[in-house]
Measured scan of single mutants.
Amino acid sequence: KEQQNAFYEILHLPNLTEEQRNGFIQSLKDDPSVSKEILAEAKKLNDAQA
């Protein structure tokens, strides 16, 4: 469930490039146990690119 939530949120971050988004999603698939950390990174990058 946590992985699904992170997946959904990353898909809807407006400021990520397609490449960045795909990278985060691939990381989620590779290691779902760190989905919280991956989501935090994605949000940080999204904010930095706002």
Rank of each mutant, 00 (worst) to 15 (best):
E41T: 07
Q26I: 10
Q20W: 01
K1Y: 14
Q3L: 07
P14S: 11
I10R: 01
L16G: 00
D30R: 12
S35R: 04
V34E: 10
L16W: 00
N46L: 01
E2T: 03
I10M: 06
D47S: 14
Q49L: 11
P32H: 07
N15D: 11
Q4W: 11
L45W: 12
A50W: 09
A6G: 04
N22M: 10
Q49V: 09
L11G: 08
S35H: 13
L11A: 12
V34Y: 11
G23I: 11
D31G: 13
S35L: 15
L39K: 03
S27K: 04
L11H: 12
I38E: 01
F24S: 01
I10V: 10
D31M: 13
Q4K: 06
K36W: 07
L45V: 14
K43Y: 10
L13N: 00
S27M: 08
A50Q: 13
N5L: 10
Q26P: 00
S35W: 15
V34N: 09
L11V: 06
E18A: 13
Q26K: 03
N22H: 07
I25T: 07
G23T: 15
Q20I: 03
A48W: 06
S27G: 10
K44N: 10
L11R: 07
K44T: 03
L45R: 08
Q49N: 09
E37N: 06
S33C: 03
K36M: 11
P14G: 08
L39E: 06
L28Y: 05
K36P: 11
L28I: 05
H12S: 07
L28P: 00
S33M: 13
D30K: 07
I10N: 01
A48I: 15
Q3I: 03
K43R: 02
N46R: 01
K43Q: 02
S33F: 13
D30V: 14
E41L: 08
N22A: 11
N22R: 10
I10E: 01
K1N: 15
Q4M: 10
V34R: 12
V34M: 07
T17H: 04
S33Y: 13
Q49A: 11
E2L: 03
E41N: 14
N46D: 02
K36N: 11
I25S: 05
Q4V: 07
E41C: 05
K43T: 08
H12W: 10
F7R: 10
E18T: 08
E41Y: 11
Q3M: 05
D31C: 04
Q26V: 02
S33I: 12
L13G: 00
R21T: 07
I10C: 01
I25A: 06
A50K: 04
F7I: 12
N15G: 06
E41M: 10
P32T: 06
D30S: 12
K36H: 06
T17A: 05
I38A: 04
K29N: 12
A48S: 09
L13W: 04
F24E: 00
I38Y: 04
I25Q: 06
N15F: 15
Q4N: 05
Q3P: 15
Q20L: 03
K29L: 15
L11W: 06
E41D: 09
E2D: 14
K44Y: 10
L28R: 00
K1P: 15
H12R: 14
E41H: 10
D31Q: 13
N46T: 01
H12A: 15
L28H: 01
N5H: 12
F24M: 06
A42P: 00
L16V: 03
L16T: 00
H12G: 05
I25L: 10
E9F: 12
L16H: 00
E37D: 05
R21M: 08
Q20T: 02
L45N: 05
A40L: 09
Q26S: 10
L45Q: 14
A50C: 03
D47P: 01
L28D: 00
N15T: 05
S35I: 15
E2A: 02
L45D: 02
E9T: 05
E19S: 08
A6R: 05
I38W: 04
K36R: 12
I38N: 02
I38R: 02
L39W: 10
K44D: 13
K43F: 07
N5I: 15
E19V: 11
G23H: 10
K43S: 09
A6V: 09
L45P: 00
K44G: 11
F24V: 01
L13H: 08
S33Q: 15
A50M: 11
N5E: 15
E2K: 01
S33T: 14
V34H: 05
R21A: 08
E41F: 08
S35Q: 07
A50Y: 15
N46M: 03
I38K: 08
L28G: 01
P32A: 12
N22Q: 09
D30I: 12
T17C: 01
D30P: 04
E37M: 13
N15H: 14
E19W: 05
I38V: 06
Q49P: 05
N5K: 10
L16Y: 00
E19A: 09
A50I: 14
P14F: 08
K44R: 05
S33N: 12
L16E: 00
L13Y: 12
L11S: 10
L39Q: 06
V34I: 14
A42V: 02
D31R: 14
A50R: 02
D47R: 09
S33D: 14
Q26E: 11
D47W: 06
R21E: 01
Y8K: 15
A42K: 00
N15C: 05
T17I: 03
T17M: 05
A50D: 11
K36F: 09
S35F: 15
S27Q: 02
T17Y: 06
A50G: 14
V34A: 14
Q3G: 02
L11I: 07
A42L: 01
Q4Y: 04
P14T: 12
E9I: 07
H12F: 12
K29D: 09
E2N: 03
L16A: 00
E19N: 06
K29E: 10
N46G: 03
A48E: 13
K1W: 12
N22S: 12
K29V: 09
Q26H: 10
V34T: 14
K1S: 15
E37H: 11
Q26F: 06
L11T: 05
L28N: 01
A48H: 14
E18R: 07
E2R: 01
Q49G: 10
K29G: 03
Q3D: 15
Q3S: 03
K44V: 11
N15V: 02
E2G: 06
R21I: 10
A50S: 14
K1E: 15
L13P: 00
K43A: 03
D30W: 10
I10A: 02
S35M: 14
R21W: 02
K43E: 08
S27N: 11
Q26N: 08
G23W: 10
P14R: 13
L11C: 07
E37Q: 13
D31S: 15
K44I: 13
L39D: 00
L39A: 13
A50F: 14
N46W: 00
D47V: 13
L28E: 01
D31P: 02
Y8W: 06
L11M: 02
F24L: 13
I25G: 02
Q4C: 06
L28K: 00
A40N: 13
K36T: 06
S27E: 14
Q4R: 05
Q4E: 13
L28C: 04
H12N: 10
